[in-house]
Simulated scan of single mutants.
Amino acid sequence: MKKPFTAILLATTVTLGLGALPAKPAQAATDAVIVSSVNFRSQPDVNSKSYGFLKKGENVDILSKVNNWWYKVRDDSGRIGYVSTNSKYIRTTDSSSGGSSSKPSSTSTSNGSSSTSSTVNKVIAAGKKYLGTPYEFGSSRSNTRTFDCSDFVRQAFKEGAGITLPSDSRGQASYVKSKGGTTTNWRNLKPGDLMFFMEYRGTSASSYPSNKANQRVTHVGIYLGDGKILHTYSKESGGVRIDSFAGKHWEHRFIFGGSAL
């Protein structure tokens, strides 16, 4: 009779022991704060519906990092959407100290800079792959047989950075402006920045207004550095090409430029 009793006692002990094991906790969301006003979108895509802007100082939970460009987040009201991973818009907080870090660590800054530089190189490489591709105004956005200026830029960023920019140059200009950090002096641009131009009015600087703030954007290209631009603008020019623009009508037509990353 002792043997069955011992077996029952052992089984009970094992069962109670297993029940006492703590459940594995779910992975916690990362606390973050909005550093600068940023679009809160329904999908990780610049063309997706926007819920509006998350304002500076708002707290959000980062639920996941979708890719190098988008976080999936939850705002204070419980809405779930997507925001840029760019550190000028969002910063994770230091939960161990109970407060937010005033600036990214040197490691984060280095990695962020390295990542951006790598992405810029990929965008430029993707664009150069299409050198000589014929120009077509209003080209189809569903193939790469021909490009107009904004279609070309859109394709380079789609392939090189995984970003789907607006389909036209004015939409791309608005997107770059929304990110901040634009300049009207092309010498302040960095490789990979987008350049926006007004319509052609001649080769002389006097043909263009000194204040171009309200001029309509008609052309876009990718700055390569050293006064060179990667773009496409006419059938006669041979399609996608690289031009030096300092002292030429391109310089006189330049309105502003800035990063789309």
Rank of each mutant, 00 (worst) to 15 (best):
S115D: 10
S118K: 13
V120F: 01
P104Y: 09
K88L: 05
S114F: 06
Y89R: 14
K103C: 09
G81M: 04
R79Y: 07
K72I: 01
S110Y: 15
S108N: 06
S118T: 13
K88P: 10
N111S: 13
N86M: 08
S115K: 05
G98S: 10
S118W: 09
R74D: 00
N111E: 12
T107L: 09
G78F: 02
S117P: 08
V73S: 01
G99A: 11
V73F: 00
T93E: 07
K103A: 13
T116V: 14
S115C: 08
D76W: 05
S100T: 08
Y82S: 02
S117N: 09
G112W: 12
Y89E: 02
S77P: 00
S117H: 10
S96G: 10
S95L: 15
T119N: 01
G112D: 12
V73K: 01
V83Q: 01
I90F: 00
S77K: 00
K72L: 04
N111F: 15
S114N: 08
S106M: 13
K88T: 12
S77R: 01
S96Q: 07
S87I: 11
G81V: 07
Y82K: 03
S113V: 14
S100I: 11
S100A: 12
Y82V: 04
T116W: 07
I80G: 02
S118R: 12
S102Q: 10
D75A: 11
S108D: 08
V83N: 04
D76C: 10
S95M: 15
S102T: 12
T119Y: 03
S97A: 15
K72D: 02
D94G: 06
T116D: 10
N111V: 15
T109Q: 09
K88C: 08
R74T: 04
K72R: 02
V83E: 04
G78P: 00
P104I: 15
S115F: 06
T93I: 09
S100V: 11
T93W: 04
G98T: 14
S115V: 09
S108T: 11
T85N: 02
T116L: 10
T119F: 04
S106P: 06
D76A: 08
T109C: 09
S113E: 12
R91P: 13
D75Q: 05
S95I: 15
S118D: 11
D75G: 07
S84W: 01
S117M: 08
S97C: 14
S105C: 07
S115E: 10
S114P: 07
K103T: 14
K88F: 07
G99R: 07
D75W: 06
V73L: 01
S108G: 05
P104T: 13
T85Q: 06
G99S: 15
S113A: 13
T107I: 12
G98R: 05
S110G: 09
T93D: 10
Y89Q: 07
Y89H: 09
D75V: 12
